[in-house]
């Protein structure tokens, strides 16, 4: 494209925005509201995902040891587990401590333990955490084969269910995002269609004097981009305020709720929202122009 043409296009966009300032205002408003809703869902889905991740990461493997093992044999197993790929931490719980914990958990009913009379039925154990929840199963199976390991528990059913649920949350989130993006695109291309319709004579004249489709398209596309970016910015500012308020409110009542901290999360959100605005504005105006460029 020639420099004088880009100059022409930029002046066109500027004039058009000034001339149709009410239409521009309406478009920016529509984009802002749509992207605000979109962003709100994005934030909710991402928080749900984070909750899922934090639940997943709490999954541990309990390794119960045979009673006959000596201290040095136990240390050897400890070392062996620690050297495994993907193992984050290994904590040893001896059988006396395990019994204490068990008693504490029984509370008022700890008299039940009187029946076993000094005999400690609980084994020595390790609690193993892995870096990635998907490693739980393979790691557990591997440890189970170790010499001196009685049995391994990792809440198979719970883990499988949890993965099902988190997978569902992610899938739901993605589908929701796609639907909302589609709806937003539809609303915006309709709004831009109004500005294109208001200027259809201009488009027709441009065609009569031999303007190429791209020459006609550029100013509208750039206008769409400007409107989209402005709408995205407004939406992002509103989202930031809203998220800050929500975070403050929730931390007031449930302090340990695993919400994603504002920074740098909202910076990413702002980039996503403004980019969405730009893409939607550009695509929306091209869609709206299609009908007028056909003949």
């Amino acid at each position: 494209m020639k420099i004088r043409t880009s100059e022409y296009i930029i002046t066109e966009v500027f004039h058009s925005l000034k001339r149709n300032s009410w239409m521009a205002f309406a478009s920016v408003g529509t984009v802002a509201v749509s992207l605000f809703v979109f962003g709100m869902f994005l934030i909710i889905v991402m928080n749900m995902n984070r909750m899922a991740v934090s639940l997943e990461s709490q999954v541990e493997i309990s390794v119960y040891l045979e009673d006959r093992l000596t201290d040095s044999e136990i240390k050897a197993i400890d070392k062996k587990i620690n050297e495994m790929n993907g193992v984050n931490s290994v904590t040893f719980t001896d059988k006396i401590k395990a019994l204490d914990i068990f008693k504490e958990r029984l509370g008022d009913q700890k008299f039940l333990l009187d029946a076993i009379e000094g005999e400690n039925p609980l084994p020595n154990s390790f609690t193993v955490k892995v870096v990635n929840p998907s490693l739980v199963k393979t790691t557990a199976i591997a440890i189970n084969d170790f010499e001196g390991v009685e049995t391994v528990k990792y809440g198979q059913d719970v883990v499988e269910h949890l993965f099902d649920i988190t997978r569902l949350i992610r899938l739901f989130g993605i589908v929701l995002m796609i639907l909302l993006a589609g709806a937003t695109l539809f609303i915006i291309s309709n709004t831009i269609r109004l500005t294109v319709f208001a200027r259809r004579t201009e488009v027709a004249i441009m065609k009569y004097v031999g303007a190429t489709d791209w020459f006609i398209r550029w100013p509208f596309m750039l206008e769409g981009i400007v409107l989209g970016a402005m709408g995205g910015t407004v939406a992002f500012i509103a989202l930031r305020i809203a998220y800050n308020m929500i975070v403050a409110k929730i931390y007031d009542t449930i302090a340990f709720f695993p919400l994603i901290p504002t920074y740098p999360f909202m910076t990413y959100i702002s980039i996503i929202i403004v980019c969405c605005g730009i893409v939607i504005g550009a695509v929306g105006s091209v869609i709206s122009l299609k009908r007028f460029l056909k003949a």
């Binding site: 020639k2 004088r4 022409y8 004097v209 020459f215």
Partner: peptide, 11 residues
């Protein structure tokens, strides 16, 4: 001038 801008004529 519009008819000439459209065909990218020099100013």
């Amino acid at each position: 001038a519009f008819a000439m801008q459209v065909i990218e004529a020099p100013r």
